[in-house]
Write a protein that binds this DNA or RNA. Structure first.
Lengths: 150, 150
DNA sequence: GGCTATTAGTTTGTACACAAAGTAAGTTAC
DNA sequence: GTAACTTACTTTGTGTACAAACTAATAGCC
């Protein structure tokens, strides 16, 4: 019988993709923190702003599909974005169940400032752009695989 | 001036690596949930168990370095693992500041059951093993890049 | 029309994640 | 030997994440 080494151990910490994923996610989000802090935004809030800069208005349901987030997560998050003055929340007049989340002028203005963030992150990472794009594509395939049976 | 399209927009949601990373991380952790539930474990708790199955005892500081987690996160997490009966916490007699976290017999026994988890996840993902290994390597390079200047 | 089922959001409870302040044990400098 | 500093962990406060229960509005069905 083979000895259990780091190379053969199924449970070796540094062979787990889930371990690499969660640390990578937290590490990269950590790079955003100082860049988002001047705007009072957290990273999930920044993702909501990205979604709204692309399309407006969006309902909680639509945001949840875009960001793969629970309504129970988005509901208080959107209230904080409203308190910050970046978004406006009102009921859809066509369907009073749905919320229409829109940008305020301040939220729209923020976009110009935010344009500086992605290049700053890429610069800080100091990684090859090709490698980042490959990684992005691999992550999208992983997401598709993970959500297929879930 | 070029029109801003999805391909040229720096802020397009689906071009952000951070967006792919956070969704991939949450999606994969979601796959673990039903497999860990029978043991009463969450995914971060599972990672702590992986670390302890490799080496014992570990201090909060050592666990924090391995898992890149704050002591403020680990402290209550370890108490829950102790309440579950999987680990034991006691002060290091050589240095009463440090905690010596060790496995209980139940925690040690859990390892055999846990061996089934990684293959089950890989099967559920239904992805090429080579591609998963490439992704793992790319994530480790990303982690190294992200932590270099942080 | 009115009953039932569905849908969209909100609320509650538990568990991370992390910053910041607090506590106790150990180390250093003198 | 003790004051000052450092280290290891705990606690507190804010903000996700997500399950589960709840509320209100709409759609379907008879």
């Amino acid at each position: 019988m083979e000895p259990v080494t780091e190379a053969t151990d199924l449970l070796a910490l540094d062979r787990q993709v889930c371990f690499a994923l969660s640390i990578a996610s937290r590490s990269v989000i950590g790079l955003y923190r100082p860049l988002l802090q001047p705007f009072g935004l957290t990273h999930p809030q920044y993702l909501v702003m990205l979604a709204l800069w692309q399309q407006e208005p969006l309902s909680v349901k639509e945001l949840g599909e875009l960001l793969q987030l629970d309504p129970g997560t988005l509901s208080p998050l959107l209230k904080r974005l409203e308190a910050l003055g970046y978004v406006h929340r009102e009921r859809n007049s066509k369907d009073e169940r749905a919320l229409a989340v829109t940008l305020t002028p301040a939220g729209r203005q923020l976009r110009a400032e935010a344009e500086k963030i992605p290049p700053a992150i890429v610069a800080r990472l100091g990684m090859d752009l090709d490698e980042l794009q490959d990684l992005h594509a691999a992550l999208m395939r992983l997401i598709a695989s993970a959500r297929r049976d879930a």
